[in-house]
Computed example of a mutant assay.
Amino acid sequence: MKLTDLRRTMLAIAVMFLFWQYAQAQHTANASSFEGVWAGQLQDENEEVQYLIIRIINGDASKYSYNEENNSFEANTFDLEKTMITGNNASYTWMNKGGVWTETQTHLLSYLKPGELWCRMIRQVTNAKEDEDNPGINNEWSTYYYGRLSYHRSIEAFVASLEE
């Protein structure tokens, strides 16, 4: 084999290697990639803000809220919660009811890169009372929020990041 042929072969191998590198997924996740505390600020189309804290442990998610009386972040309790994780996506849904209302929140989580998720949150509320604008049906409304969530190894680490 001539030196020129060897150079062409080496160049071809190098080019194939570069294309192979770019053809691979940039960031891939598995269930353990979602483990931890994820917190961030979501907004709707009117730029109204909602803060979200989700903790995922052993594939099960919980939503956390600040309790002013206890001066601490605590897990919320809902009638029904479901978490599903596959590949780079996770879904966390909770449902609750009280009086005439029933509420559902679904959080669609996309793994962007280590330490960062994208969240699309849909909130739906149905009231078992007649809709004023549409007689004969129940009153229903919904809203949609979106934004980035950042990783924290624990609730305590999240709280410490607020104090920085």
Rank of each mutant, 00 (worst) to 15 (best):
K97N: 14
H152Y: 00
N30M: 00
Y145K: 01
A29K: 05
Y144W: 10
V49A: 13
V49H: 07
V37D: 01
G40R: 02
V15Q: 07
S154V: 01
N127P: 00
S72T: 12
R7I: 15
L18N: 07
D133T: 07
M16K: 11
E132S: 08
E163H: 10
D131H: 03
F19D: 01
A75H: 09
G147W: 01
G87D: 02
E69L: 02
N134S: 11
E68C: 10
L52I: 03
Y92W: 02
E163F: 00
E68F: 07
S65K: 10
V159K: 08
T104R: 13
A23M: 12
R8L: 14
S110T: 03
N30D: 05
K63E: 07
A31W: 03
T83F: 06
E163W: 07
R55N: 07
F34Y: 06
L52A: 07
K63P: 04
A61K: 03
E69A: 08
V100Q: 11
P135G: 04
T4W: 13
P135N: 03
W141I: 10
V125T: 09
I155R: 04
T83K: 00
G115K: 00
H152S: 00
Q50W: 03
S33V: 06
V49L: 12
A39L: 02
I137N: 07
A12P: 00
N139G: 09
A39Q: 02
M16Q: 10
T28H: 05
L112G: 01
V100F: 09
D133H: 07
R148F: 13
I56C: 06
K82Y: 11
F78Y: 15
Y64W: 06
L112T: 03
R153A: 14
E163L: 04
D79I: 13
N88L: 02
W38C: 04
I137K: 08
H27M: 10
L11P: 00
S161Q: 04
S65R: 12
E163C: 08
G136M: 03
L162H: 04
G115N: 03
E45L: 15
E130D: 01
K129W: 01
V37L: 02
Y66I: 01
W94H: 12
G59I: 01
F19T: 06
G98Y: 10
N76T: 07
T93S: 12
Q43V: 05
E156Q: 04
M121L: 11
R55C: 06
T143Q: 10
S65E: 12
Y111P: 01
